[in-house]
Design a protein around this nucleic acid. Structure first.
Lengths: 113, 113
DNA sequence: TTGACATATTCCCATATAGGAATATATATT
DNA sequence: AATATATATTCCTATATGGGAATATGTCAA
């Protein structure tokens, strides 16, 4: 068996860096394809193809505006990834603990080295 | 250019479902390869190959115990994925808002239709 | 040393890219 | 209708799979 299709789910679609970049742009503003082409320095067909993958898995939405296709990120589809990664949260060196440690270190240094 | 290697980063490594499954198992407990083989119903070589990919990107750690190789998830490497998905958080239909809406809807229905 | 057990590696193949080049499709303008 | 603009699609190719089968490597036990 070969690798799963990039369109099989959000995990596969998002594995490609340029597609993540696209999602970042389209999260900030709705943009036509041409704008992405300029900002990313990619060929137009490449951008269109990436957008198709993202559309197939529902990570972006489109609407036509004249001859422009306006794309925007559909963040809700990113949420499952967030939820999955979140299940490992308890295994991370806890942030609160880190803050505490840093605070203590600072206090220590203030007390005179 | 072809697709980026599965070992190029955590995003690519995690795109494969069986590898996510492995990470879930190894987050709960340190396990030898054989246990994963049994639990996942995969061939041993397949599991070993998946583990190699996960090792290459640092998503799992190994230690030898006799003839057993004990694997465990290195959750810290999952954190970048979490952080990336988190940047889209503000775009989600906010959960608190949803709870409020549901509460209001319920109240409305209680007040008589 | 000889097996037995546990894991890793190699070889094979069908499949799916990502980007480049060329072309097709759709819409607006004159 | 004819042309320009914007986007999508098709064809091409080098590359990297994931699993199956077979084999190699490493370690313990008798």
């Amino acid at each position: 068996m070969a690798r799963a299709a990039t369109t099989s789910d959000a995990f596969n679609a998002v594995a490609e860096p340029r597609r993540r970049e696209i999602l970042e742009y389209l999260a900030v503003a709705e943009l036509p394809v041409g704008d992405l082409v300029v900002r990313m320095g990619l060929e137009q067909p490449s951008v269109s193809k990436h957008l198709k993958v993202l559309r197939d898995v529902g990570l972006v939405r489109v609407r036509r505006n004249g001859r422009h296709m306006m794309y925007r990120t559909n963040a809700d589809e990113i949420r499952p990834l967030h939820e999955w990664t979140k299940t490992f949260e308890r295994l991370w060196a806890h942030q609160l603990l880190r803050v505490k440690e840093r605070a203590e270190a600072k206090e220590k240094s203030l007390k005179g080295e």
